[in-house]
Write a protein that binds this DNA or RNA. Structure first.
Length: 424
RNA sequence: GGAGAGAUGGCAGAGUGGUCGAAUGCGGUGGUCUUGAAAACCAUUGACCUUCACGGGUCCGGGGGUUCGAAUCCCUCUCUCUCCGCCA
């Protein structure tokens, strides 16, 4: 949620910025500013009404104490009109506040100046591409064939037990999964991210905090009886650790990492490009989350980008980095870098990580603050990224590193898998 | 699942209708003293809204109610603890 202060002072900037998302926000922002004005007026009126009635109440108390009952009862009558008035003002203020908040919630984050205007993924900028794209012959097989053939992943078995999009990993396939999780966590830890194991279900307040609710309700699995949601990413529980907290300057920056399974309903995204591991309802991901002072967040963002790059390099996977255009940048993000690895058999890029700076968009709603130099509370910046999402990494590993009779395991991973190749 | 107790400031813990944003202790910060530190002493120390400012307002788990007035009374929800049952 954008800060009302920011909009008061940066009306033009916000309108111009949001235009890069293809959004004409002028009317909404002007409505917000009007409501803000009205809300503050109602607040001031309410405050002075309450001040009057507080004063009278004290006087009544005083009179009763002195035994001057008559005068007290007379004074009581005066409060009647004040009471009515304060109730009205209270209602008016709340109504303005809700209207204002609803409009505020409807606005996405204002993109960073680096972000280019654009409608869709076609307009994303390629920042760099690293690693040679392997030229496999036409015999190159897609990962779902390799996985089934080598008994690594059973898609049908998942359908039997649960449903489509819930694969079963087995044998070396399961071991590879565990190896990758440990490898990622170790790399993140070496880079200074503290490891967490959070709950895999969150309550409503947490889902609102990171912005899954109210909009993306249909994307989460919901356990109605207990009011809980299965997490779509570790970002949700991890960021919520700090909800309503005021941190001291010397605790910053905060860097966390966590492995969790992620659950997504992916409603409406059936059909193309969802075969095999490309899109699942349950998948594994290792996430990194950071909280920084406002002036440090872009340095942190750059550091996180470099960090993810290093991991991909260790896995010998060709990758490219995209800076998403306005239209493709997520609702809550000010700037997002997507990482994609080359899928040798599908002959296309697969997104494996998304690193974003949310600035104060998340922390505003969650009230994640720190005490600045003047000892005043100030909102922190929040960032997160995948380091990394497993399924498409596995897909790329199987496809890119396939051999005549199996799959070769990258050097860096061998200490974790305990084997250097997978054969039939 | 059954029975009971409770939720107050960073923590501990008073407060059962009026001047209580809230005693006291600990902790934090600043200072005095000291070569330095400790101890001691002094001062200070919640968040939010509003105002150019003075000031005003809100917040004692959440929501609602009674009252001129609620941390204090009533209703309701959530959570925590103790005992019993069940259980990885």
């Amino acid at each position: 949620m954008l800060q009302i202060n920011y909009l008061r002072e940066n009306r033009e900037k916000a309108i111009d910025g949001l235009a890069k998302r293809g959004l004409d926000a002028q009317q909404t922002i002007d409505d917000i500013l009007t409501l803000d004005e009205q809300r503050r007026q109602a607040q001031t009126d309410l405050d002075s009404t309450l001040a009057q009635s507080n004063k009278i109440s004290k006087e009544i108390g005083e009179l009763f104490k002195q035994g001057r009952k008559e005068e007290a009862l007379k004074l009581k009558e005066k409060t009647v009109s004040l009471k009515v008035r304060s109730k009205d003002l209270q209602q008016e203020m709340e109504q303005k506040m809700h209207a204002l908040e609803n409009l505020l919630l409807s606005l996405p984050n204002v993109p960073n100046p680096l972000v280019k205007a654009g409608k869709s993924e076609a307009d994303n900028e390629e920042v760099k591409q690293v690693g040679a794209i392997p030229s496999l012959d036409d015999k190159a097989r897609p990962h779902w064939e390799i996985a089934e053939d080598l008994n690594l992943i059973k898609f049908d078995l998942g359908v039997k037990i649960t449903g489509a999009g819930f694969p079963v990993y087995q044998g070396k396939g399961a071991r590879l999964q565990r190896a990758l999780i440990n490898f990622f966590l170790d790399e993140n830890q070496k880079a200074g991210f503290q490891e967490f194991i959070p709950p895999h279900f969150v309550n409503e307040a947490s889902a609102y905090g990171t912005g899954q609710l109210p909009d993306k309700e249909g994307q989460m699995y919901h356990i109605e009886k207990d009011g809980l949601y299965a997490i779509p990413t570790a970002e949700v529980p991890i960021t919520n650790i700090f909800r309503d907290e005021i941190l001291e300057g010397d605790q910053l920056p905060i860097k966390c990492t966590a492995y969790t399974p992620c659950f997504r309903r992916e409603a409406g995204s059936y059909g193309k490009d969802v075969r095999g591991l490309n899109r699942l309802h349950q998948f594994d991901k290792v996430e990194v989350v950071a909280l920084t002072k406002p002036e440090d967040s872009y340095e942190m963002l750059d550091g996180m980008v470099v960090h993810v790059e290093k991991i991909l390099q260790k896995l010998d996977l060709p990758y490219r980095i995209l800076r998403l255009c306005g239209g493709d940048t997520g609702f809550t993000s000010a700037i997002t870098y997507d990482f994609e690895v080359w899928s040798a058999a599908q002959k296309r890029w697969l997104e494996v990580s998304s690193v974003s700076n949310f600035e104060t968009f998340q922390t505003n709603r969650m009230k994640i603050r720190f005490r600045n130099q003047e000892r005043k509370t100030e909102l922190l910046h929040s960032l997160n990224g995948s380091a990394l999402a497993l399924p498409r990494i596995v897909a790329a590993l199987l496809e890119n590193h396939q051999t005549e009779d199996g799959v070769a395991i990258p050097q860096a991973l061998q200490a974790y898998t305990g084997f250097d190749k997978i054969e039939k």
